[in-house]
Design a protein around this nucleic acid. Structure first.
Length: 265
DNA sequence: ATGACTACTCCCAGTAGA
């Protein structure tokens, strides 16, 4: 038995619903984290997705941001919002817990702030959000349960994760402070699922719409699944569905998934 | 390269994304 957990920044779920349904049928993920749904909860196309056998929970927002969790396993609990800043109204975080044959699996779906342009209040907001995520992770890791942080991190972890690293050194996605903060998440014992299976450079999850970035393979790896030791121990396979970027009217991000040897209840 | 695309919005020029 394996459980497939996926993440995909769809860049508007209403624009992408047909592609999403096609991909769900092809990939057959058990749990999916969606980002940038760009709609309020009432406008989310839940019926079509429920028809494929998913339980759906959304944390939406008008126009921007918005995250959703889809799961073939029933949610025991869900919670929206990341602790640590009562002033933050962005819909960027949604946590769900499902029951397994042995214990539970906790999934945090996140859309980490972009942070550009650096020099505006957007970058400190990003760094603060990352430190809030670090605190959340510290707390959750104490339970010693399988935990997955999945989403659009807006972080390029390493030079091998971007086509032209020299052009990105001052960008909020690649700045030293950003990468150090991401590293401190890994320092807690979280494993970058893709890097647990390969060191290969040039594996991307995002290609800009502009300047033929997809055709030239000028991409970024910014969508990640971070696994607690209890999840990492069960890791069987990881994939990037980059072919989805070649579809008609695609998102600029593609799905990333991980298979874990865990049994559903 | 002040560029390029795409999607959003009190409907359409301005904002945001990465």
């Amino acid at each position: 038995m394996t459980i497939r957990v996926a993440t995909w920044n769809v860049n508007s779920v209403r624009q992408r619903i047909d592609l999403l349904l096609t991909w769900l049928r092809e990939c057959q993920p058990d749990i999916v984290c969606l980002q940038e749904i760009k709609c309020v909860d009432e406008a989310f196309p839940r019926l079509e997705i429920e028809a494929l056998g998913y339980n759906v929970v959304t944390h939406g927002q008008k126009t921007f941001n918005g995250v959703a969790l889809l799961s073939k396993l029933k949610f025991d609990e869900t919670k929206s919002g990341l602790a640590g800043d009562d002033e933050d109204v962005h819909a960027r975080f949604l946590e769900g817990v499902v029951t397994l044959k042995r214990g539970v699996l906790r999934i945090a779906c996140l859309y980490l702030p972009n942070g550009n342009p650096v020099g505006t209040d957007k970058y400190p907001y990003k760094l603060k959000w990352m430190s809030r995520l670090l605190e959340y992770s510290k707390e959750r890791l104490q339970t010693e349960e399988p935990l997955i942080l999945a989403g659009d991190f807006n972080v390029i972890p390493h030079a091998r994760d971007v086509h032209n690293p020299a052009a990105w050194t001052e960008d909020a996605l690649f700045k030293t402070e950003t990468r150090e903060s991401f590293q401190s998440l890994l320092g807690l014992g979280l494993a970058d699922a893709l890097r647990a299976v390969t060191d290969e450079p040039g594996l991307y999850t995002f290609w800009d719409y502009q300047a033929g970035a997809w055709q030239k393979n000028h991409g970024l790896r910014i969508d990640h699944l971070l696994l607690s030791p209890q999840a990492s121990d069960r890791l069987a396979n990881v994939g990037i569905d980059s072919y989805v970027r070649g579809w008609e009217k695609p998102s600029d991000h593609v799905p990333v998934w991980a298979d874990l040897d865990l049994e559903a209840a």
